[in-house]
Design a protein around this nucleic acid. Structure first.
Lengths: 353, 353
DNA sequence: TTGAAAGCGCTAACAG
DNA sequence: CTGTTAGCGCTTTCAA
């Protein structure tokens, strides 16, 4: 009847070290069983598979559970079943408004399904990402990796042992929800070309960012089609602060329009241009990606490629939960592609003559 | 040798339902023990209290563990110890940039201490908050409640059974990190008074928000001292969208300055004023709270009371971890108050004559 | 429909 | 320094 946890209060984590109020150790199904005069297994059943238990005993047990203030212990529940009802969302930078939509969408979906969300920040470091994944691997039912910086191989290996879905990243064989960049970037270039621009610069994001390379690829392809010249500058930190260097680099060239890796960078560029007396859109046009919070009220307001970030987050989570739930059946892998659309605001205008 | 989990692969959650690659079931300390020719308890010790084991066996065990790709199961680890090394951060609205700093600060602190962070969104609902707390109570080592909407009593009860710290909320007997509103709000009023304003309106936030009432209280007290009149309008939703109603309400009065519950609301007000042709700061001055992302680049840029949100988050987490770690010893409760400071920008100007 | 019993993976007394 | 053993709280066979 004992072993290591001699003091039940201590075991239950109720030690208040001197506090007056000491609640009794949390009730377990055994307490309920004793109190209700049934076996623990019956309590367990009554609480998790009500239909497999006599109506009257069920009611009785529920009443006792209530009276005792019973709360199931998710840890104990997870051990035998191997199911934690917990999923982790890994983002490269919580600070980046880009992820807010993703986080919100994922959180809502998880919460609706009764799953708990663990949020991890990797600060743009593949190493930190790896450590987080490693540490959580056995404590969660699956991962949503948003804009992962992990190498393809690592992601594939991980996906082989635990459900994984990707947001805005594609790796062969792993389910994903990505916002289409090709079509949208094409719209950006067409918009710029229609305004008369013939020479644009892409202000690149982090080297390890899949998105960054997608965007550049799409941009240069579209530029070729539209017969405008496109150069690539960077990489730059995808932050407002990073905009300074990016703007300076752009001003050293002859381009009349810049397309920034994301809105954060674009906003930083806007600010730096203002500082250096470059008029937007008079002298230069600026385009961003994501339509983050603030893109509509910065000055000038930002032309940007808006993607359904919320939906990307919730879709990725939905697919993940499918994977988790229908693990044994052969669920077909799902690759969801969501459309982006250009929002034109004040930061783009006719090419100066 | 069996029971419920007949198929080891299934138990380990490795069932790939038709996928070619089927990794062996995850290694346990028993696998290591067998392989290394020692007892499981020795493996456990070698891995968690290296100094309590012979150097050579330790090395040997580590090598075997490595070879087997062993990863400790945090769930199994948590069950006997009652410690999950997991803490929950509950915020009322993930979408609100106000919390970004808090989230980031808390995340960093937790992560540094080797704790996992669970993030929950309550969508401004005390009910949802209650449910989250209820569900997590036995699965985490403690809670950080940011801008909690829970009634005092509930918070106190919770704190009596599990470590809790509060961000920007104070409840007798519960540790907290709050950003001082009194002194800062005084600065706002002085600033406005110095500009000649004599009649200001406070655009209130949610009824249940402790912050909202603190700010109003501080504001009306400061106004009295400065001999300016202050009225309270609202409550309004603390969002950009909420700014519309707030702005309209303000325009129905004779005030020449408005102080909004937070920057989100202030930005919404700015936008609405622009729509309705009210010039800021020519006709009206606008002040916000928090200095959120965007407050410096909206147009006009926003005068606002900046608080160290990051620090509030990290401090609350730090205190929580102290509470968790030093549970048994009588750690004195800590109430940390952090200073705010006014950042004056373009949205405030002289009172129109 | 219910009870008895085993076991999830790990930790920590306790004895040697 | 190491092995034996019990037990964390719950779920799930299996038998009654």
């Amino acid at each position: 009847m004992d072993g290591m946890a001699r003091d039940p209060d201590r075991a239950a984590g109720n030690d208040r070290g001197g506090q007056p109020y000491r609640p009794p150790r949390a009730a377990t199904i055994y307490d309920i069983a004793r109190e209700a005069g049934v076996a623990a297994s019956t309590v367990s059943r009554a609480l998790t598979q009500p239909q497999r238990v006599n109506e009257r005993t069920r009611v009785h047990i529920e009443r006792v559970a209530d009276r005792l203030g019973y709360r199931p212990n998710p840890i104990a529940r997870a051990l035998p079943s191997g199911r934690t009802h917990t999923v982790a969302l890994i983002v490269s930078d919580i600070t980046n408004p880009h992820f807010f939509g993703v986080i919100r969408g994922a959180e809502r979906q998880a919460s609706t399904a009764g799953f708990t969300l663990i949020l991890c920040n990797t600060e743009e470091s593949a190493d930190a990402e790896d450590r987080h994944v490693e540490r959580l691997a056995r404590g969660v039912d699956g991962f949503v990796l948003a804009a992962s910086r992990l190498p393809d191989r690592r992601i594939r290996d991980l996906a082989a042992e635990i459900p994984v879905t990707l947001v805005n990243r594609k790796v062969g064989g792993v389910a994903s929800a990505v916002i289409d960049q090709r079509e949208g970037t094409q719209q950006i270039v067409e918009h710029l070309a229609a305004l008369g621009h013939t020479s644009i610069a892409f202000l690149a994001g982090p080297q390890a960012s899949w998105m960054a390379s997608q965007r550049w690829r799409a941009l240069s392809a579209a530029a070729r089609r539209q017969e405008v010249s496109a150069i690539r500058l960077g990489p730059f930190a995808p932050t407002v602060a990073g905009g300074e260097a990016a703007a300076d680099a752009a001003l050293d060239t002859e381009v009349t329009a810049v397309v920034a890796h994301n809105d954060l960078l674009a906003i930083g560029v806007l600010r730096r241009f203002a500082q250096r007396g470059a008029n937007v859109p008079g002298d230069l046009s600026v385009v961003g990606y994501d339509d983050i919070f603030g893109a509509d009220f910065c000055s000038p307001s930002l032309t940007t490629l808006a993607g359904p970030l919320d939906e990307a987050g919730s879709t990725a989570m939905e697919v993940l939960l499918d994977l988790i739930t229908a693990r044994d059946s052969t669920t077909p892998r799902r690759d969801v592609v969501l459309p982006a659309h250009l929002i034109t605001r004040e930061s783009t205008g006719p090419c100066p003559t």
